[in-house]
Design a protein around this nucleic acid. Structure first.
Lengths: 206, 206, 206, 206
DNA sequence: ACCGACGGGACCTCCCGTTGTT
DNA sequence: AACAACGGGAGGTCCCGTCGGT
């Protein structure tokens, strides 16, 4: 059971902890609970991670990687800007139904919990949210360039998408009410199909 | 005089604790910090509140009352549905700049932190979010009735507004990035002025 | 039991902890043992001291104050340099038989245990040992001035006295063998009575 | 080859651990640090030693053997009692400058750290200190017999030498102040050269 | 012979809530 | 009404020792 399993165990710890932390809270969840879901004792866990923060950090990055991977795959599979945006929206819509991500968006969750006295976690959340916002922004810029979308402030439009979707995920998750995410997604989808009002110019301008 | 002082002190505790709890976290904030901002010792606080949860509960309801009051005043001061919606949006836009509410929306904050093992707090957040959503919904229903807004699923439309605005507040607060809330608000304002696409029917239908 | 007893309790903790720490070890002794001798629970102790190190620090200074007090009283009660030196030696001879100091010299004990990663404790021991050495040195300087003692390097002579006596205390304490301290004390007493060889000049010269 | 390697490795562990334990503390030093200096993992060390205490025990005896060897060599190389005593003193003077013994006298170090719940270590230190004291005592007895030294209580005189020298080593090591050991050594050397006051009888009598 | 994954326990710290007291 | 001494418990960390494997 020795050496060879080390990598696997470490990954197993991260994977099993991921869902727990994202649902119960990165800071609130005690090592005891982590011990329970991993089936390991404190000694076993601390053999793989120097500190609780290290484990949280790695778990967070694992969760972010799940999202990043989906985004990357989506951007490759779809060609048009509209389809890409609709796909990104779909990723958010599916979030609460994913087993490990049913706690909501890990980025917002950790951002909510991490304080200024945990600079590593804060920095990680900042970077992660930029990843998402950046993806939206780049798609929008490209869509505008090729005339598929109406001209607009891409950064603002991206921020609007992310904020609305994150809000939808958050409310749906926390209040167990699917309507929030559904409503937001539908609204955004309509805007996308409309090309941000390509003909009527109702998009975010300045 | 005893009773009068008691009531005043109790209220003072709530008011002084409100901003702290909403910014630092309802569950994360320790009694020590609460003691610091109130200037009272443990005994003094527990004399007025049977438990920490009671204080949290009352503080939360105080914060919600601040929001409710603004909403009520706004609904009274404005006559048209569009103006009322724009006013509600403005309330959210001002949230992060309010001294006591700079921690973000208290409802979402507490909803985020409260677990299933705290049914009272959960119930309070559920009720509070319905208050907000209900306000939007009623305005929309009225607006549609009088023809000021395009026909739509009012509940969904309200959910969409609240989710987007809450998301904007959340991201702006947690990432210290005003663009999220600004972008969301502008987008919603545009939709409102458009009367949810009164002429082109781009609003949330089913 | 409230406010008034605070000072007394704090002092009681220090006094009861003093003997324990000096005998069992400043670093080795666990909070659990300190709880036992003080009769308080962790909460009670941490109410009075912010950290274990703080308690150790204060306990150490209490023990040093006991020694300092004896030295001060001795220096006042005796007039001649020889009598003062004999008195100082006697203080060391009595150390292992003192209830609270039976663990040996607190200065050397803590100096032994404190590492470089505890600068406060290190600094305290440095200061404390200088207190002892300084007392010897000043007496010797005065004794030489008035011709009661043979001319010598006072600092060296003082260091010799302290080292020998500390060694005697240490060995007697750790090996439970009174002869070490007795032998050292007798030898030093003989040198003192001899006035450091006032007539034959066998004292430490350069 | 297996057995040979085993013995060599075992000795290597002891030698590499010796300096570390004597400087950092026999009890305080963690297995992690021991692993670091030996370059072995836990399993490797525990393969050679049944317990941490066994390793400490053996390391201690190795360090004592270093001292014993020096003493034996000195006693052989010098003929006269005075020269032997001066040589013994010199051994102590050199202690803090020896690479492996720069932590001070291993006997006193371990005696300080070992508690009553470690009878083996206690016994080992008792035996070791008797080795040193016995060496002094035998030299003194011989010196008195042949008239090189003034008649005296040899056991006491030996105890005095050892206590003073150990004290000097201790203070010099712990306070990083060479004067203590230097002063003690000079004083004792003077006494030796004087033959313990062969002519004036100032030596330890009863 | 040696590695290293893991169990299990002890330690310090901090926190909430009670209670005697002023 | 308010203070503050104290109990009791839980959390994160680290450490020693075992044992399956190479």
């Amino acid at each position: 059971m020795a050496k060879r399993d080390s990598v696997a165990t470490r990954r197993r710890i991260v994977e099993q902890t991921a869902g727990l932390l994202n649902a119960t809270g990165y800071m609130r969840t005690s090592m005891t609970e982590i011990m329970k879901v991993t089936g390991l004792q404190k000694g076993g866990i601390y053999h793989h991670f120097a500190s609780r923060e290290d484990l949280v950090m790695e778990t967070f990055e694992y969760l972010v990687s799940l999202v990043r991977e989906r985004v990357a795959r989506l951007l490759k599979s779809e060609a048009g800007a509209k389809d890409k945006l609709l796909g990104l929206i779909r990723i958010f819509k599916e979030l609460p139904f994913d087993a490990t991500l049913k706690g909501g968006c890990p980025i917002l969750n950790l951002a909510f919990e991490s304080e200024e006295d945990q600079p590593r976690l804060r920095a990680a959340t900042n970077e992660a949210i930029k990843l998402i916002t950046g993806a939206f922004e780049r798609v929008i810029v490209a869509g505008v360039s090729c005339g598929e979308l109406a001209p607009c402030n891409a950064r603002k439009q991206a921020a609007c998408f992310v904020a609305a979707l994150e809000g939808g995920v958050m409310l749906t998750t926390r209040f167990n009410e699917p309507v929030y995410l559904t409503a937001v997604a539908e609204s955004l989808e309509a805007q996308v199909r409309d090309g941000f009002g390509l003909t009527q110019a109702t998009s975010l301008a300045n």
